[in-house]
Amino acid sequence: MRAKRKLANVYLIVIFVILYAPIFYLMYYSFNSGGSMHDFKGFTLEWYKEVFHDTRLFIIVLNTLVIALLSAAISTILGVIGALAIQMLRKRQVKNSLLTLNNVLIVSPDVIIGASFLILFTIMGIKLGFISVLLSHIAFSVPIVVIMVLPKLQEMSPTLVDAARDLGANRWQVLSKVVLPFITPGIFAGFFMALTYSLDDFAVTFFVTGNGFSTLSVEIYSRARQGISLSINALSTLIFLFTIMLVVGYYFVNKKTGKSNGMGVRGR
């Protein structure tokens, strides 16, 4: 029995090592003065300096952040409206078909979304660039927000709304004082998911980005196609640290808002 337990632990450790080895491998060589991803010659911060002095890269990072924040904010608003709309529908069939349509963009492969949006924007006469990227990020984030908010709405007892109405609240007050505070954890979760989807997206952006406008993923792709350059390593180390901060932030937001509502225990 003990031998078995040991074997199990070894298996898990191997899986974790494989999962993390490539990431640490990238980070390790970002300090290599040798200029390649083998033979560690000596410690240097030269690549980080290069990243920080690269104004083009700086603009791209700014673009990426602006797109992520804007698209997450707008898609959160749209997604909450969508979840409210679905929740209020009475007919099961209509509800289910709307949900199915909602999920189409979540399960579609990125290439399909990218290619079809490219056609759409071309037909609508929208110039490829900032606007097209922003619109497509909003478009594929909305269903995720709906999925995150809807369970919270379903959890809410209808008596809460009825009580507010009986006490004389108008429709806007019911929404802003009762419904929205109740679903806040779902809204936050949706916002964070939208943010990460936007930051992480490559394929859709690649299709609709056109010339002149670029996000970080697209830039990394075009640099990686030209081969290995250790400034990408430095960049990825920075991104990884940023990601960890984001994850920790998300974890705490979830924990904090979860506690007051008894979430977190459910759904797992």
């Binding site: 999962l19 993390y20 490539p22 990431i23 491998y25 990238l26 060589y29 390649s36 991803m37 083998h38 033979d39 990460t196 930051l199 992480d200 490559f202 970080l216 993923s217 990394i220 792709y221 990686a224 081969g227 290995i228 990408i232 990825s236 991104i239 990884f240 990601t243 960890i244 984001l246 994850v247």
Partner: peptide, 21 residues
């Protein structure tokens, strides 16, 4: 956690790992 790391960076890491040296 690793799923939060950009897919392209992971692919790029494998460019080095599977490289000739």
């Amino acid at each position: 956690l690793p799923t939060w790391v950009n897919l392209l960076l992971k692919a790029y890491a494998f460019l080095g790992i599977f490289g000739a040296f």
